[in-house]
Design a binder for these strands. Sequence first.
DNA 1: CTGAAAGCGCTTACAG
DNA 2: CTGAAAGCGCTTACAG
Lengths: 360, 360
Amino acid sequence: MSSRAPSTVPTITDVAEQAGVSIKTVSRVLNREPGVHEQTRENVLKVVAALNYRPKLSARSLAGARSYLIGMLYYDPSAAFVGGIQKAAAVRCREAGYHLVVESLENDAVDIAEQVERMVSALRPDGMVLIPPICDNAQVLATLRATRTPCVLISPGGTGHGMARVAMDDELAAEELTNLLISLGHQRIGCIQGAPDQAASGLRFSGFQRALAAHGLSLDPALIHVGDFTFPSGVEGAHRLLSRRNPPTAVFASNDDMALGVLAAAQRLGMQVPADLSIVGFDDSPAASLVWPPLTTVRQPLAEMARVAVEMLTERAAPGDEEGASAGAEPPSRVIAHELVVRDSTAAPRPVARAGNTPS
Amino acid sequence: MSSRAPSTVPTITDVAEQAGVSIKTVSRVLNREPGVHEQTRENVLKVVAALNYRPKLSARSLAGARSYLIGMLYYDPSAAFVGGIQKAAAVRCREAGYHLVVESLENDAVDIAEQVERMVSALRPDGMVLIPPICDNAQVLATLRATRTPCVLISPGGTGHGMARVAMDDELAAEELTNLLISLGHQRIGCIQGAPDQAASGLRFSGFQRALAAHGLSLDPALIHVGDFTFPSGVEGAHRLLSRRNPPTAVFASNDDMALGVLAAAQRLGMQVPADLSIVGFDDSPAASLVWPPLTTVRQPLAEMARVAVEMLTERAAPGDEEGASAGAEPPSRVIAHELVVRDSTAAPRPVARAGNTPS
DNA sequence: CTGAAAGCGCTTACAG
DNA sequence: CTGAAAGCGCTTACAG
C-alpha cells in the first residue's frame, strides 16, 4: 500500500523533478543567485508555489555557512525594555529570512559562560544581540569573542569591548531632561542614580551634571542617591532626599521604575506631584503613562535600535565576509535618535519658599 | 602550512577517533541510550569534555526526528505578561536541551497564517507554545493543526480547539476577588470587562457574577463597562461609572492595565483610593505594585504555566510517540494554582452614604 | 554491548 | 546558463 507517498513534506528533489531541472538550479533560484535563465526561474518558482515547498533550515544550515539564526541573550530586569527590543528584532529577522532564538540567563549565575557556550555551539547562530545588563557582562563577552560569534551590543557603554554597538545618546538625553527642569525654574534638583555596574548609569548622571554646570548650578552631594534601577531603590532615595531640611523641588530619576518609586513615596508623604515636587524618569516604560500624573521621561528608540542591530548582523552574515569584518577596523557604532516625552509630572516649583513642607 | 587543522570545531568523528569507538557509540552516550558499557561511557564522556565537544543542532535535526526547537508565537498586548511566560519557557527549554524560537506576529495581519506556516516549515519545531491573544486566533490554530505541529495553549478558554492547554482558573480567581470586595462591605460594585474576543474576559466576568449572585447582590447593568484590556479603556470606564448619580464604591477591573486606568481617573477626579473607591485588578503586572496605592490583584502563575507547557511539549516529543498522542484521546488540560495579592487599593466603603461624592 | 552503512536535505566547489 | 558529485554532522534502522 501507499504507506509513504502522499503526506510527506516536499523536498528540493521533488521540486527539481517536477520542474525538470537539477536541484542545484532550484537552489540557485531560491537563493536569488544570478545567472539563471528567466524562464527557468519562473518555472521553478511555479513548482515551488504549487508544492508549497519551503527549504528546511537544518539542511541549509548543515550544508552551508549560515544558520539563519540570530541569538538574543535575555535577562529580565525590565520586561518592557526587553519586550520592545525583542519584538522589533523578531520582526526584522523574519523579514530577512532569519529566526530569533532567545535564551534566558541569570546575570549572576556562576556557569553563565557555559550556558552561553552551549547555546552557541549547538545553534551556531550567525549573530547575537546583547542587551543590558548582559551586554556589560565580561564573562559573556569573553565567551562570545572566543567562539568568534558576531555580536551587536545594544548598549550606550563607551567601554568598547571591540564589538559593534547601537544605542541612543543617554548622556545627551539626560542633559535635555535636566535642562527642562532648570528651564521650569528648579534650582535644587535631586538625582537618583542607576546601578553602578551598568554603563547607562554613568552616562545619564554625566548628562545631569553637564546641564547643572552649564547653568552655573552647584550639585549638592546630599541630593544624590545611588539606586539600582529598581522601584524600591526609588522609594528609598525619595525618602532620603525628601526628608532633608532643604529638600529638592525636583528629582531626576535615572529610569522610570525609580521615578515611579519617587512618585509613590511622594504621594504617600502627602505631597502633590508636580506642585510640590517635579519628577522625571527615563525609558518611557509602559507604566510611565499608566500612573497619575503620567511621567515626563525620554523615549528610548527600542524598535529602531533592535532593527538596526539585526540588520548589522544579517547583512554581515553574507558568506565570504570573514576577512573584511575581522580586519583591525574599528567596529561600527550607531547612535539612534531619542525623543523627550513631556507629560504631567513636571511643573514650575512653588513660587515661595516652602522649605518646611516635607513631613517630619 | 596547516591551514585547516587546529581551529576547527570538533565533530562526533573526532570524539569517536580519540575515544577509540564508533560514532554510533558516541551518539549513544550523548543521547543517554541504554546498553553502553559503563567504562566505555565514561571514556567517551572524558573525551567529550577534553575536546569540549557539543553536537551541532542542525545535524541532529536533519538526521533525526526531532529539531530540539520549541516555537513561541508572540504578540505584545502586555509586555509583562509575555515576558514572564517567555523567560520561564526559555529556562525550561534549556534544562531540557531545547531552544526557544520566538516569532513576533501581528494578530490582525492578513497573512498571519502564512507567517506561521513559514516558520513551521523552516524550523520544524517539536512544539509550539501559544499565548493570548494568539491562542484565540482561528487562522493560526488552523495552520498549526494542518502542519501537525504539537501545541500547548496558555489559555483559559474552554473552547477546546482539540489542543492541549494550561491555565489558571480565571473564573474562580475573579470570584475570590469579588468576594473580597463584598466581605469588605461593598454592595455596589462596578465591573470593567476585558476584550470581548478573548476567552479570559468572559470567564472573569462570569466569576464576578457568580460572587454577586452567591451573596444575593443584584448586578446593575449601568455599572458594567466593556473595555479591551487597555489603560485608556479603564479610564473611559471609570468616567462612565463614576459619573453616575449612584456611583459604585468599588470597581472590579478585568486586568491591571484597566485597573490602573480607573486609579488614574479617580485620582484625577480628586478621589481618595481606597477611601472613596476600592479597586481590584487582575494579573499582578509589574506596574500594579509600582503605583500608589499598590493594587489588590491576582497573581497569574506565569512561570509555572510556561514551565508546564514546555514540559508537555518536550516530553511528548520523544520519538515514536506519534500514534499515542493523535489517538482520539482528549488533549491534556492543566490548571495551575493562582494567588490573591491583597494590597492597598481595597478597603471598606465610607460608613455613611456619600452618594453626592463624585464631581459633577 | 558495539559498529558499518545509509541517508536526512540542503550548499559548496568544480565542470562544462 | 546548468548539472553531477561530494559532503555537512549527525541519527536511523539493521547486523552481529
